[in-house]
């Protein structure tokens, strides 16, 4: 029963929507529903990357701590986005903090479970990688543009 609910939620998330039902079933086996209060950390820099979040509601900030400037927000994510991809490649360690800016509802996918299923059935791994890559590329491109200091520094062009 609980498992079915999770499967529905997983299907509804943009990352995985449209994937074949058997694959969704497989991935749902690694999923559980989670909730966070505002201010809670979903990921902590330096800690094992054991969870992959599919955000359903609420916004999450990707942060990095600086002794001088305090915590800096690098990016904010919201419903439909994903949080965390350090789980995909060794050493499976989170590179940034992820903090709930408001009450957050998400699907938490267990990273060890995902990696095991992907290894066991490369077609599952491929589809998952394909979907995550699309998000990665999107965010990388946006990051590249932000590196330009688009709005503020025509003189430094």
């Amino acid at each position: 029963m609980i498992r079915r609910d999770v499967a529905e939620v997983v299907t509804a998330h943009p990352l995985l929507s449209g994937l074949p039902a058997p694959i969704i079933e497989e991935l749902a086996g690694c999923a559980r529903n989670v909730a966070f209060e505002a201010g809670a950390l979903l990921l902590v820099e330096g800690s094992p990357a054991d969870t992959f979040y599919l955000l359903r509601r609420g916004r999450v900030a990707i942060e990095v701590r600086s002794p001088v400037r305090g915590p800096l927000v690098i990016e904010t994510t919201g419903p439909g986005d994903v949080v965390g991809w350090s789980w995909m490649v060794p050493p499976y360690r989170s590179q940034f903090d992820a903090r709930a800016l408001e009450p957050v509802g998400a699907v938490a996918l267990d990273a060890v479970c995902l990696r095991t299923k992907a290894a066991a059935d490369p077609s599952v791994g491929y589809l998952l990688l394909q979907r995550v890559s699309a998000v990665l590329i999107d965010r990388l491109q946006a990051t590249r543009l932000r590196l330009l200091d688009l709005y503020e520094a025509p003189l430094a062009r």
Partner: peptide, 9 residues
């Protein structure tokens, strides 16, 4: 910084 409650991106 964290004082900003809006979007970053």
């Amino acid at each position: 910084d964290r004082g900003w409650r809006g979007h970053v991106g």
